[in-house]
Design a protein around this nucleic acid. Structure first.
Length: 852
DNA sequence: CACGATTGTCAG
DNA sequence: CATCGCTGACAATCGTG
């Protein structure tokens, strides 16, 4: 037993005494004690299945951690009420032996507002580590953390304030000295992707992250709010409303000294290679544009004119936006649709044939603009109004800044000359859907293409040419736009808003500040990202069945450090996706998959410049499926296959066996000697490693094992197997040899192999259902087992099928095949078990209840 | 050709 | 002091059998 473990056990008994709680309550398996029988067995089964993947020890401890935290909260409520929350925001881990002891420190931290981390698996969350001395290995492990002496806690409490950790740092080498130095000089402003808080800090300051997140929120709110859906034939009035240089306006409003109408203002972080998020119209007059670097913007200004750089004010932006959407929602004319485009932009739709009198668009535009201006304390919006989305958008362009413009499609095509002069006002990239890349493609056909009129004249009667140039759909879309009409895809926003705004994927992307040295560090980072995403996934009650990892790798000839500070520079993008057999929302599974995928992409750690994780195929965890799973729970759940127990991580077995004993839950089938692993080099090697390293090695071995056998091979094999199984089933229909002939006739066939065949057969027939004759043969086989007193084997087969049904219920629950298998299990297999209950009990001396 | 995987594009 | 180059949808293109 290693020190940590020993310490932990000692401490739990110590704590029990001090708090005066009963032994039972302080049991390390306390968590388990709170579960129902069913939940416990389910938990163990999950844990056991997961354990094969070496991962669930983490989940188990995470669970314990949660409970512990709840207790901490209680302690704080009890003792810490009147205490100053000195350690608010700190998450502290205590390493090894300390003086005063772990227990006392724990209580001090918790009562003074800090969080206490019991296990280091959530390393990234830990802000400080308390230790009196550290062995070399740990020094290495903790080198990027703030490691302090216990005196830091004690003296902070004595002085009733958080003292600088640097004064109490447990220094040991240059790296730690540097960490201290950096922290002292820049307090906490250093950006380092190895820092556990990097992601959080980055996102808090990233405009694009906020933009994306706001948009997602608005979309989901839209879907839950309710709306009137127009039909294709309806006549519509569409108002496209958009703030004028929103970020810049908001920033200027909170800066009394700057006049937004007179001085050029930009919103940005820095002074050189920083992106301009938003610039006012004075700045635009000089050619400054959003997205431009500050250095470029400055160079555009004539001598004597100073650029005013203002910081972001995300909070205020959210506030103004809330007001904006409220004005729209409460406007005297009820809009049938208020489609959120972004934080500062919405499309409002009125269905004219639903109302008795035609609406006055002009008046609406004026009213809305003044309402919004008043309510937001001085933000202006512009409005483009029409009967199609594309024209509303183009009209908005004309309206800006601080105006409105109304023109309908019919009006526009009435007179060709008017239409042409209208189109002549726009640059080609004013057309929605045309950006940098398509412009250059178009210009490769005709070099000096500038206005929409020129675009129209160039391609008016040559759709095929245009499609060859920019692609099929894009070509069609462009020509339709030039007639003022919306294409199919764009109209979906209005006519099928549910599907248009529904979320189809979930992703995270960081292409700034990424500088790593080792794969280990990258693994940690991937863990953090995965955790962030999985939390979102679970919040929206979804699972994913396909994951993509995309990385940016520095181009071979690109400089190590690009011009932009911590930017990604010139990169190649590499991506790889992997399909998961069963949809999941489990962090362990997902993070492991990602880490192994990263290795597949073969990007050198030091050349990594960007990371992106996408969950591509989302499935809803519906109430239906939960119900399904419940219904599938089988009568023998009060027993537990020994294998389930045996597969548990060694260090938690003890907890479980105690709990099982307490509840009189019995293990079925006798323990097999653990022949599979014992004596192998791997195992011996592992046994000699300290726990913390052992887990790391395990993880690495596992990942490597995965890589050796690539996903592609795996898929190929799966496919092959599936094809063969199906062939067998089909063959039967043609009167050929049955899948089950061998079982029936070759009594030597090993049970294990039979199980394998049954599973393959099961998998292959989940959709269409097993063949009747095969089922008869199978039942025949089961009867033979029954006759020869081998009931436990029947039990194992039924367990196998039931577990399998559970696993597949999400994906196949509705399929005929699935339901036929379920029926077969309930009607044909379970009764056999019940019939043999007596024999079974006698033979096995087990207490099993087969009530259905 | 049909497919799935990967890469590209756009918007705000 | 730098600086905070996200995210989701769909289209195009590539590779495979």
């Amino acid at each position: 037993m290693d020190d940590d473990k020993l310490l932990e056990i000692l401490e739990s008994s110590q704590e029990a005494e001090v708090r005066g709680r009963s032994d039972d309550e302080r049991d390390p398996a306390e968590t388990l004690g709170q579960l129902s029988d069913d939940a416990l067995i389910e938990y163990m089964t999950n844990l056991s299945q997961g354990a094969k993947k070496d991962f669930t020890r983490e989940e188990y401890f995470r669970d314990k951690e949660v409970k512990q935290r709840e207790r901490d909260e209680a302690t704080r409520a009890e003792l810490g009420e009147k205490r100053v929350p000195i350690f608010a925001g700190c998450t502290i881990y205590i390493n090894g032996y300390t003086k005063p002891g772990r227990l006392q420190l724990h209580e001090m931290i918790v009562t003074y507002g800090g969080k206490f981390q019991h296990y280091l698996l959530a390393k990234k969350k830990v802000t400080h580590i308390v230790a009196t001395n550290l062995p070399l290995k740990k020094r290495l492990e903790f080198r990027n953390y703030k490691v302090v002496k216990p005196e830091w806690i004690i003296e902070s409490i004595e002085q009733q304030k958080l003292l600088p950790w640097q004064d109490y740092a447990l220094l040991w080498d240059q790296e730690q000295r540097n960490l201290q130095l950096n922290s002292t000089i820049h307090s906490n402003s250093t950006i380092d992707c190895k820092d556990p808080n990097f992601l959080k800090t980055f996102f808090e300051n990233s405009r694009l992250h906020h933009l994306s997140n706001w948009k997602a929120d608005l979309r989901s709110r839209f879907l839950s709010d309710g709306f009137n859906k127009p039909s294709r034939g309806d006549t519509l009035s569409i108002f496209h409303i958009d703030f004028d240089c929103f970020f810049a306006t908001v920033a200027a409003l909170s800066c009394k000294s700057c006049d937004i109408d007179r001085v050029p203002i930009v919103v940005c972080h820095g002074s050189k290679s920083s992106d301009i998020a938003s610039c006012n119209y004075v700045a635009r007059k000089y050619g400054i544009r959003n997205g431009m670097w500050v250095s470029r913007a400055k160079s555009l200004l004539p001598a004597g004119v100073e650029l005013v750089s203002l910081p972001y004010n995300f909070k205020e932006i959210e506030e103004k936006s809330k007001i904006f959407y409220n004005v729209l929602k409460n406007y005297r004319i009820k809009f049938d649709l208020i489609l959120p485009i972004s934080i500062d932009e919405a499309v409002c739709v009125v269905i004219n044939n639903h109302i008795p009198h035609p609406i006055d668009c002009d008046e609406i535009c004026r009213e809305l603009r003044s309402e919004i201006w008043k309510n937001t304390g001085g933000c202006t919006v512009s409005i483009g109004c029409s009967n199609t989305l594309v024209l509303a958008r183009l009209n908005l362009k004309i309206a800006k800044p601080n105006g409105y413009y109304i023109l309908t499609q019919e009006k526009m095509v009435e007179n060709e000359a008017d239409w042409d002069s209208y189109l002549g006002q726009f640059q080609i990239d004013d057309l929605p859907g045309i950006g940098y890349s398509i412009v250059s493609k178009l210009r490769s056909v005709r070099a000096h293409l500038n206005t929409l009129l020129q675009l129209k004249q160039c391609f008016y009667n040559s759709l095929p040419l245009l499609q060859k140039c920019v692609g099929k759909k894009t070509g069609t879309k462009i020509l339709m736009s030039l007639e003022g009409k919306d294409d199919e895809e764009t109209s979906r926003m209005i006519f099928e808003p549910e599907s248009f705004f529904a979320r189809k994927s979930l992703s995270i992307e960081i292409n700034w500040g990424i500088r790593f040295d080792t794969v280990q560090e990258i693994d940690n980072f991937i863990d953090t990202c995965a955790e962030y995403l999985v939390q979102k996934l679970q919040e929206m009650n979804r699972k994913t069945s396909q994951i993509t990892l995309k990385v940016l790798r520095r181009c071979a000839n690109a400089p190590i450090e690009p011009e932009k500070y911590l930017g990604c520079g010139e990169c190649d993008a590499l991506s790889h996706n992997c399909r998961l057999g069963i949809p999941t929302s489990e962090l362990g599974v997902i993070a492991t998959e990602l880490k192994s995928t990263f290795r597949l992409l073969g990007c050198p750690s030091k050349d990594l410049r960007g990371v992106s994780i996408q969950f591509n195929k989302l499935v809803e965890v519906s109430y239906d499926q939960n119900e399904n799973q419940q219904r599938l729970k089988l009568p023998f759940q009060k027993t537990l296959n020994f294998d389930v127990f045996d597969n548990l991580p060694n260090d938690v077995k003890h907890d479980f066996s105690k709990e099982l004993k307490r509840r009189n839950i019995v293990l079925t089938s006798s323990p097999r000697p653990k022949a599979t692993y014992a004596g192998t080099y791997e195992e011996k090697f592992m046994e000699e490693l300290p726990t913390q390293i052992r887990n790391e090695v395990k993880n690495d071995l596992r990942i490597n094992r995965k890589i050796r056998k690539t996903k592609v091979d795996e898929l190929r094999e799966q496919n092959q197997r599936r094809k063969e199984s199906i062939k067998n089933v089909r063959a039967h229909l043609l009167g050929h040899e049955s899948l089950f002939e061998p079982i029936k006739f070759q009594k030597e066939a090993r049970f294990k192999d039979i199980c394998k065949i049954v599973m393959e057969w099961f998998d292959a027939t989940l959709i269409e259902g097993p063949h009747e004759k095969d089922l008869l043969l199978f039942e025949n086989y089961l009867d033979r087992l029954s006759d020869s007193n081998r009931v436990p084997l029947i039990l194992r087969i039924s367990k196998l099928i039931s577990v399998r049904l559970n696993l597949k219920s999400n994906q196949y629950g509705q399929e005929v095949g699935f339901q036929e298998w379920e029926q077969f299990l309930l009607r044909n297999v379970i009764p056999k078990l019940n019939k043999n209950k007596h024999t079974f009990q006698t033979v096995r001396k087990l207490d099993i209840d087969f009530d259905i």
